[in-house]
């Protein structure tokens, strides 16, 4: 109990002081995870839409696979991306290991199945409602996919939030491909891991409290936008 109190005190102390180091880490965390979710959305939404409206061989297996990949272990993703980006790996020439770009790639890989699988579900539900109307208007499946993506855009915000939560919370992948370099690739989760290994548990937990608070704030903001949009567009 005492430790928890100290953790909260640490958290509020850090926030209150607007510690420069903390601001830097928080900013990088947000940048990396937001960029990762953006890339994952660019890849995941079309994939989800294609699976929702498409009818082709292997569709069922791909859906099962995607749903399973939602639980990809971050360390495994981190390791694979590490081996790809390492100088000794196939993409080594770009020299982006231990940079934020590498962290973005790893998190994007982690989040893409989540966004694809959840958007597939959302869009397929909408397709059930829209199918006759769209086909009656002469929409081909490709038209339908884009129409549905746009029409479910407010629900897809929630899908992106799920991806963001996953990205912001994971430590295994960014630790391996980012290297937790002070001032360069240190984000909230790797900082927490570091403070834990230093035995400074209250500070680690304090950072954790800030991270959770941050994720709650992002979710609340997105939810407000979503509610307002739904009220406006029905």
């Amino acid at each position: 109990m005492n430790d928890l109190n100290r953790a909260f005190a640490e958290a509020f102390g850090l926030i209150g002081a607007l510690d420069a180091k903390l601001v830097e880490i928080v900013t990088l965390s947000l940048e990396v995870s937001v960029a990762a979710v953006a890339f994952a959305a660019v890849a995941g939404f079309p994939l989800g839409a294609a699976l929702a409206v498409g009818r082709f061989r292997g569709r069922g297996s791909i859906i099962v696979l995607l749903n399973a990949l939602m639980g990809l272990p971050p360390v495994v993703v981190g390791l694979v991306v590490y081996l790809l980006l390492s100088r000794a790996g196939p993409l080594g020439e770009f020299g982006i290991l231990f940079t934020p770009a590498a962290m973005v790639i790893a998190q994007a890989v982690l989040v893409t199945p989540i966004i694809a699988a959840l958007s597939r579900q959302t869009i397929e539900d909408a397709w059930r409602e829209y199918e006759e109307q769209l086909r009656s208007l002469g929409a081909k499946r490709l038209n339908a996919a884009f129409t549905l993506l746009w029409d479910t855009r407010f629900s897809l915000i929630t899908v992106m939030l799920a991806g963001f939560g996953r990205a912001a919370a994971e430590v295994g992948a960014v630790m391996i491909v980012g290297g937790n370099i002070d001032g360069v690739t240190r984000v909230m989760t790797t900082a927490i891991a570091l403070e834990t290994s230093k035995g400074d548990l209250p500070l680690a937990l304090g950072l954790g409290i800030i991270l959770v608070g941050l994720v709650i704030m992002v979710n609340a903001a997105a939810n407000l936008i979503r509610e307002a949009a739904l009220r406006r567009y029905g």
Binding site: E31, F39, P100, A101, G183
Partner: peptide
């Protein structure tokens, strides 16, 4: 990768 860098490069 280049666009990743642009998006996520630190202020270096």
């Amino acid at each position: 990768l280049a666009s990743c860098m642009l998006l996520a490069a630190p202020g270096v």
